[in-house]
Amino acid sequence: MGKIEDLQVINGEGYQLTRLEKVLGTARANSVWPLPFATSCCGIEYMATMGSNYDLARFGMERMSFSPRQADLLIVAGTISKKLGPVLKQVYEQMAEPKWVLSVGACACSGGIFDTYSVLQGIDRIIPVDVYVPGCPPRPEQIIDGIIRIHELVKNEPLRRRYSDEYKHLLKDYNIETNDPEQSDK
């Protein structure tokens, strides 16, 4: 992921439309509701980020939605073991489009020091990741950095990107079904 610029070229629209998309994108970026999938140490730092000193609410992000249906941003913070992998994938699949993934901390990004038989070596093996935040655990500053990156992404993302072939292809690589509105009736 991350080739947003390319996609924008592909889906190039008229100037007015792009402008509207910019406005909508900015609005969307200011209301990204996170789903904290916090398993271990990074979860505590995430709590600190939510706390008064760093105040994630400034970005309109204090409404945590533990239900994947309502979330826009999946924050994976902490070790994901191979046992937990399917759960994470399921949560990702349950989220409604558009959705983004922030991988917080060394464990989620790459397994960190836990290069062991039981730990998944990076969540990007099972779900697509938009932004990586290094650190073990990252400081709240870094988590906010990552969130600002996500906001950049949201701002510049064309509305139709989620229907593009590239995106479908990407999900197919991960064996994730796209939940088309037509399919969900069944």
Binding site: R28, G60, E97
Partner: peptide
């Protein structure tokens, strides 16, 4: 804390942003 302050002045556009976000979100059943 400060609360929402990034969407517009003092975050006044926050509800609008939320509204737009929700409208554009996939309508999932």
């Amino acid at each position: 804390r400060i609360g929402p302050d990034r969407a517009g002045p003092f975050g006044l556009l926050q509800p609008l942003a939320d509204g737009v976000k929700m409208f554009l979100k996939e309508d999932f059943i």
